[in-house]
Amino acid sequence: MAKRNSGNPNTPERVTGDAPSQLERHQDPGLPPHRPRLADKDPKAANRAEKQVSILFIVSIIGTLVFFIGYFGVDISNDVEALRLQNMLLGLGTAFAMLGIGTGIVHWAKTLMPDHEVVESRKPITKEADRADAERIVGDILDESGIKRRPLIRNTLLGAMVLAPLPAIAIFRDLGPLPGDKLSHTMWDEGVRLTLDPSGTPIRAADVTIGSAVHVIPEGLKEAEHKLEEKAKAVVLLMRLNPEDLDPSEGREDWGYEGIVAYSKICTHVGCPVALYEQQTHHLLCPCHQSTFDLTQECKVIFGPAVRPLPQLPITVNSEGYLVAQSDFHEPVGPSYWERG
């Protein structure tokens, strides 16, 4: 503890402004004495370090060569194994090339470059006098422009400035069409056959066994003008369960056919496909945010962030035994939006 009193050049100075407390400060012992490194004292160690650095640089050279071997030496056409090998060689080569240079330079800096810590004093970011000058100059500029004395100029200029950027917003109007009622209609309509996704084969009621889940698109989707947009709204999940498990509400008794029911596959939360059907629990699960819908309760939400049940597509069977839609969905499918109502 003796050195405490010996004094030192780096007496701590008070922080700028008023320190609220701690008027009594501890004595700063100053920077610890410099401890020489091995390489500073022993020329052999310095030579060793020099060799180590150059070995690291040579490793880098080898790395670059490995890259070229990987790039030119491996034929990747139609061969995933070769591609994997090439990718690894490129990675290995680049990694060695870069790490060799990087670790070499750092090792050089650490062992051979001076390691005396340097003290630099901080200069104030700004001078008080400068600030006063700046304030005065800005004041003068404002005065000379006369903007404070001539409110008419100021007010009309403000008005112009507010309006002028509006065209820059308006010009983006043609980024897209207005929604109109597009969100509330799909391709489904009376008599449109239910077909398999992706093949487009129509489905017979007799082909849907109990416990099955069929991913369905409307007939003619492939020829539709906006195929993906239509598909994004119209995809349906078709399931068959024992009719006694279903308890349709009033007005929906004939929306299914002998236990076959069709529900929109688009989650009412934010629109992921709710495609996970558990055939024993009759739950539908959305893999994105885990909203769970109970098929036996007309796809009411029983877990997760969704609020509305999945819309049901009323279906029936046509004279040839194929499943067809009775109409479009009776409500918009997918996530909620303001005008949905």
Binding site: L196, I203, R204, D207, V208, T209, I210, G211, S212, A213, V214, M239, Y277, E278, Q279, Q280, T281
Partner: peptide, 13 residues
């Protein structure tokens, strides 16, 4: 067969 909760994918599906 659609074991447990897996749906059945018959030859029509």
């Amino acid at each position: 067969t659609g074991p447990q909760n897996m749906p059945v994918f018959n030859d029509a599906t």
